[in-house]
């Protein structure tokens, strides 16, 4: 069976005044209907990998890959319009902070309706019903009321649920979640993750979970890619986290405190030039 997503030697570079910056430098992996975590510090290229798959890289950037296949469709070779119509329909992405990623002057309900109407011929009445259903699916208790609220009128957790609803309402096959809980309060994080977890399981989606938090990713995903300076330095299954070989991964793991142990001095994340080679 063909995998859901095949990425081979993905490269993303940005031209700047002082020369080109290579954000992603040869990332390869493939994904079935499973959960893959991508972990790395900021600037490691994890977010740009996700955006390149979605086709959301800024215009001036250069995106190349030996293969970038969604099912058996070549994402880089297809006309822009077809690729656009895949977004939101079969490929979707959740962004970090609902405070910025929802349009502030549009009600939440209409923003979700917009996704539906872009991809399906559907009457306004049916669209509204579908959206209310979706809002319920992300465990919003009174969807009728939330439908008419503006983003600034809801809490962060509620906003992120609306974001999830907006991206999943068309039933995509692959979801990329780019730090979906990093901007939320700790208590809300777990609830949002639980909702995401349930929906991904129920609908049998593939998931790419991009985060800086190795522990979080490992509890949530089947496999983890560790990225550093635009490359994958290690691929692990979540069960075997403690067998990490690469010193960078070990460093990430060591950053976490353990109950009952005293650590002086606190470990500092090491970075060595040769890892980036």
């Amino acid at each position: 069976m063909t995998p859901l997503l095949t990425v081979e030697d993905l490269r993303v570079s940005f031209p700047t005044r002082t020369g080109t910056v290579d954000a992603v430098r040869g990332v390869s992996f493939s994904l079935g209907r499973e959960r893959l975590g991508i972990v790395g510090e900021s600037g490691s290229g994890k977010s740009q990998t996700g955006r390149a798959i979605m086709g959301l890289t800024p215009n001036q950037a250069d995106v190349r890959a030996k293969k970038l296949l969604f099912g058996d469709m070549d994402l880089l070779a297809m006309p822009p319009k077809e690729r656009r119509l895949l977004r939101g329909k079969r490929l979707a992405m959740i962004l970090q902070d609902p405070k910025y990623s929802l349009n502030p002057v549009m009600t939440i309900g209409l923003q979700i309706v917009e996704t539906l109407k872009t991809h399906e011929r559907i009457s306004s009445k049916d669209a509204r019903a579908r959206v209310l259903q979706m809002l319920e699916a992300v465990q919003i208790n009174d969807p009728e009321r939330v439908f008419d609220l503006y983003p600034h009128e809801v809490s962060g957790g509620m906003g992120q649920r609306a974001m999830i609803a907006m991206m999943l309402v068309c039933g995509p096959d692959l979801l990329i979640a780019d730090e979906p809980t990093s901007a939320l309060d700790v208590t809300v994080q777990l609830e949002v993750l639980a909702i995401l977890d349930k929906l991904v399981a129920e609908r049998g989606m593939g998931l790419i979970f991009v985060s800086h938090d190795l522990r979080l990713v490992s509890t949530f995903c089947d496999r983890v890619l560790v990225m550093y300076a635009g490359r994958v330095v290690e691929e692990l299954s979540s069960a075997n986290l403690d067998q990490a070989q690469h010193p960078y991964t070990q460093g990430l793991l060591n950053c976490l405190p353990h109950i009952g142990s005293h650590r002086h001095p606190l470990p500092v994340l090491e970075r060595q030039k040769e890892w980036a080679e």
Binding site: G88, Y100, S101, T115, M166
Partner: peptide, 14 residues
């Protein structure tokens, strides 16, 4: 340059 524009693209809008 705002994030909601990225989100709108991710929804597949023209």
């Amino acid at each position: 340059s705002q994030e909601y524009i990225v989100a709108a693209r991710a929804k597949g809008l023209s």
